[in-house]
Nucleic acid binder design. Structure first.
Ligand code: MN
Ligand code: MN
Ligand code: MN
Ligand code: MN
Lengths: 220, 220
DNA sequence: AAATATTTTTAGGGTTGTCTAAAAAAATAG
DNA sequence: CTATTTTTTTAGACAACCCTAAAAATATTT
């Protein structure tokens, strides 16, 4: 069964809300994520339910069937492999690749993902530190702490970012904050919960909101 | 102005018919190429005319404006660069890449083609020997003769194939007939114009139809 | 030049995916 | 437990793209 890009995007959205953000995939949440209207979501959910890709009861949050989950996982795999290709081979900045991967992830061919994976050397994490599921659908795991939840004196390296927003990532570039960059957490500023941290021996400040979207691997 | 994949496919089709096959792009010719119906073509041509991408008068063959030509050329560049990537980097067989490139050619990003071109080392010809237009829209030129038009004793190497059909290319694989393969033309068989030729010291036969779709660079 | 065949366009309709506005259901507050 | 607010669904419409069948225009024969 072949799915339209729109159908695929809905499956991805439901996966992101339920499995990644651990929220309920209700009509509005999906509409917000996909920048569409609740009525459009209802329509599409019904179609996906007929195709046995989601479980749906009127007025209840929707969930993926096994089949739907497999497809969503494969799309995430595709998205993240393409992002890796764009950064590692085409020398794109990590801030620019998300919207291109949104298009590339829908390219259909039986062998493409495996060949791309092989070519890239079976990467485990994408340029934003997000885990790339294996062909079998397993996500590599890792111990991470949100930068916003460190304690004074904690040291570590940036392991992932939780947003793909271009302006957010560009701002991190300015501070040399990229994946694997060592940092030291200094303290939280009482005034508005901003974070003070040391990067390459320089002190910088990050808003609470930005700090919430940066994950750290703590050094022992 | 951003164009749908369908609109882009029509521009490519008109380019192929007028500039490559040197025929008139009338409604039926386009419908056959795009495997659609004449009435659908008329509808789309009208839309493209409003957008000033084609010149259209009722009942007359259609032609591309400069703007339409630039877009078509860029799509061909995209298609052929992606085919090159698939064969040279992902190790696809040349017989499998066309349908994937049909999808990839529509990916939109300002920098993508230039980065891909740079990464591939500015290739001049794609895996089928077709010229890859430069960023400026110039097609590399070459002296070619159709295999069907050689004379007994002529030697040369295969420089391109005129069809992307998977079964055609797979059949060529079986005979070791790939780009740059040296061949010697033996003779035409009176019975049905089949071609006898020597490949790696072995004699083989090709149907007239296949020979018409293989281009040769003659050796002096 | 008229008759016939072919090509192109128009008319009307179907599907997919979107939207707004209104109705219905569920959740929340008093 | 009712009243109000919020969320979800339904109804109806629209744009893009494609289709079939019929009409109109053009090309080819006789
Ligand atoms: Mn992304
Ligand atoms: Mn990513
Ligand atoms: Mn091709
Ligand atoms: Mn090609």
């Amino acid at each position: 069964m072949s799915l339209s890009s729109a159908e695929q995007d809905y499956l991805k959205a439901i996966f992101a809300i339920t499995r990644i953000e651990h929220r309920q995939a209700n009509t509005n949440a999906i509409a917000v994520l996909l920048k569409t209207k609740a009525s459009s979501v209802t329509d599409m959910i019904k179609k996906l339910a007929v195709k046995k890709l989601v479980k749906y009861e009127k007025y209840k949050p929707v969930s993926l069937t096994n089949k739907g989950q497999k497809i969503a996982t494969s799309l995430i795999r595709s998205h993240r492999l393409w992002e890796t290709f764009l950064v590692e081979r085409l020398e794109y900045d990590w801030s620019r690749v998300h919207s291109i991967a949104e298009q590339l992830e829908h390219i259909e061919d039986d062998e493409l993902l495996d060949k791309l994976d092989h070519y890239l050397g079976y990467p485990k994490f994408d340029p934003h530190g997000d885990p790339i599921p294996t062909k079998e659908g397993t996500f590599p795991q890792r111990d991470e702490t949100l930068l916003s939840q460190l304690n004074p004196g904690d040291c570590g390296t940036i392991s992932s970012v939780l947003q793909d927003d271009e302006s957010f990532l560009e701002a991190l570039n300015q501070l040399n904050l990229c994946i694997n960059q060592p940092i030291e957490y200094i303290k939280k500023i009482d005034f508005d919960q901003s974070i003070q941290l040391k990067i390459n021996d320089h002190i910088h400040i990050l808003s609470e909101n930005m700090a919430k979207n940066i994950a750290i691997q703590k050094l022992p």
